[in-house]
Amino acid sequence: MSVGIRAALSVLAVGFTGYLAVGALLWTTPPANPMVQLVAVACYLVTTWLCIFWKAQRTARADPITGELGRGALLPAWAAVLALAAAVLVPNASWVAAGPEARSLDFATWSLGAIGALMAIVMVRGRPWVAWTGVVILAVEATAWIGPAAALALGVVGAVLWVAIAQLLTWLVDRAASDTAALTELQRAASEWLATQEGTRRERRTQVQRALALAGPVLTRTIEQQGRLDAADKQRARIAEEALRDELRGAALLDDAVRHALGAARDRGAVVSVLDEGGLEGLSIEERARIRAELARVLTGAISERLYVRASRHDEIAVTVVGRSASDDGDDRVDLWHEIARQA
């Protein structure tokens, strides 16, 4: 509900309660105690307008998803108590002011509709128990002063209906707000899923294009030669196959500089294995760029016969590069060990 609609409803409520109050001041025969009647009307108007306007705009409970659709600000406890006090004092004061002979006249029974309207406002402001308590108090007072039949005929039924309708409308608005929030959340989830799928499709297209760029020439050469490849062609096929494996097992570690360094290492005959187990997860774009740049430098300067690049979920180390080469006695030795920290 927009602020403009709420303001219009507030003005409507003020006009309606003012109209009810005017009914208490229109009499052909003056009441027995006119000053008591005037005080009762003033007390009613002050209480009602406080319940309408007190912090209703400034503390409205705007839902982050549905905006202003939900119910307005909760009526403060002291204002709810004041409304109950008005439900007790205003009708009694009106009947006292009217005198024994005029208790069934309009200016004496105006409080039945007036307190019903006040309790409807209290209901809308989120105090249902207070509203129904006020209606019960009103019905008991009217029965005591003018009898049950006259009480039902002159306004108690209307007061009950107003409060019941206010509760129903409030429940419907809250339900609409809840349903709107649920639908909005579903739409958001659907949009996120579609965005994820689009990103996955885009990444898949990129991988396919890169695979074609890597393997396309080799496959074309293989078809042309009918599978009879010389040593150089076999070397190119091996390098292409390893490059494709890098894209599948360690895509997060790769950029143009790293790919170039891996290709250069393989061109000189090194066997390179790249495996990503989530070492770059949770890092910023800047940190990932720093790690890839350092990895490219390490690979460019490596002279090992076999290189192993592994990115693990270690708390401190993001990437480990290990190089092994054959020693003079025929055993493998580690000639490169480099660790790249997760944080600079």
Rank of each mutant, 00 (worst) to 15 (best):
A296H: 04
R236Q: 14
E281P: 03
G199S: 14
R288L: 07
R292F: 03
L254Q: 09
R268G: 04
R236Y: 01
G250Q: 01
A215D: 07
E247K: 08
I239K: 10
A232Y: 07
E305L: 09
I223A: 14
S304E: 08
L212E: 15
S273Q: 11
D230A: 03
V271F: 02
E305G: 13
V271D: 10
S273T: 09
L219D: 06
L307W: 02
R204Q: 15
R201S: 12
A296G: 07
A231D: 12
L244E: 09
L248P: 04
V258A: 04
R297E: 12
I303D: 15
T196M: 12
D246W: 02
R288H: 12
L244Q: 04
R297N: 10
V258F: 01
D255G: 02
E247F: 05
L275Q: 14
A293N: 10
L307S: 06
L214E: 05
A270T: 07
E247W: 00
A195E: 11
R266E: 09
E241V: 13
A251K: 07
V218K: 02
L214M: 06
Q226V: 12
E277K: 13
A289Y: 08
E294D: 14
L248W: 01
R228N: 08
A265V: 05
L214Y: 02
T196K: 10
I291M: 07
T200W: 14
E277R: 15
I303L: 13
A265Q: 10
R205V: 13
E281W: 00
R210K: 09
S284F: 09
S273D: 14
